[in-house]
Design a protein around this nucleic acid. Structure first.
Lengths: 136, 136
DNA sequence: AGTTATAATGTAATCATTACAAATTTGACA
DNA sequence: TGTCAAATTTGTAATGATTACATTATAACT
């Protein structure tokens, strides 16, 4: 699906050196699109990379965020989830199953007011409630 | 500005028993509209209520959220801020001064797609960047 | 006043994240 | 290929916000 070479190129274009852990974290994010936490990524990769350290996962994710390879998703307090999808979209977190769902939203039409003079770097739209599987 | 009686009535309408700490927390939230953290609220009130415990502040805030007296604001990970304003609005957090600013936004116009079958309980819109005072 | 439910308190535990110093790897260059 | 410097990774210990929980206090109701 995502060749190592493509991933390498992608990281290099974003000025991130494509080390093995970084490639693996990126591959994981892109393949599962699962909004994983640092802990989930660590657990998913540690079998394949036995020397992997959780600090490396955190370092990598911070690096990714800084270089806009990934976006942090903070719906509740608690753990931060990460997302490597590029297009802007909203996140819906189900209160029951805790899964995060993506949805499309067009903020251009939402006509925000009161931000003249502000420099916006990042927008996040987080909804909470019950997903179709969990509504009762 | 906010009489104790009004606050009492307000809490009772939301099915929250108006104990003294709860009234004081609500008063603080409404008066300063400062998006304080639990810790900030605790520090602001502990002089006036020397027996106040931080756990009580957390309990109170949880109770408020549950009863829709307050809304949690989680922009980054880290600490949760709280807001007792009723109308829906966005939050902008300045990366430099860390202040949170409110802004108006009309999500009805944003035509979200992909949420049919979902029951939405809560929406939050968080922007990050530089506020006018901190842009350089 | 006595009893029961609800709320407040304080301490100890938890959990995600960060700090930091040491070890390892990488890449450039001779 | 060997060497060196820079960048990355690692492991452990610390931090900081939040929660768990048992105890005490307060309020409500008979």
């Amino acid at each position: 699906m995502y060749s190592i070479d493509k991933l390498k190129e992608y990281l290099e274009n974003k000025d991130v050196k494509p080390s093995y852990p970084r490639l693996k974290v990126l591959e994981y994010l892109l393949r599962y699109q699962n909004h994983p936490t640092a802990d989930q990524i660590y657990n998913a990769l540690v079998n394949e990379i036995p020397t992997l350290s959780k600090t490396t996962v955190y370092n990598t994710l911070h690096r990714f965020v800084e270089s806009k390879v990934a976006t942090p998703v903070c719906v509740d307090g608690g753990e931060t989830h990460y997302d490597a999808t590029v297009n802007e979209h909203g996140h819906f977190k189900c209160q029951i199953c805790k899964k995060i769902f993506d949805f499309d939203i067009d903020l251009e039409k939402a006509c925000e007011k009161g931000l003249t003079g502000f420099e916006i770097l990042n927008r996040s739209i987080n909804y909470k409630g019950f997903c179709p599987n969990c509504v009762e």
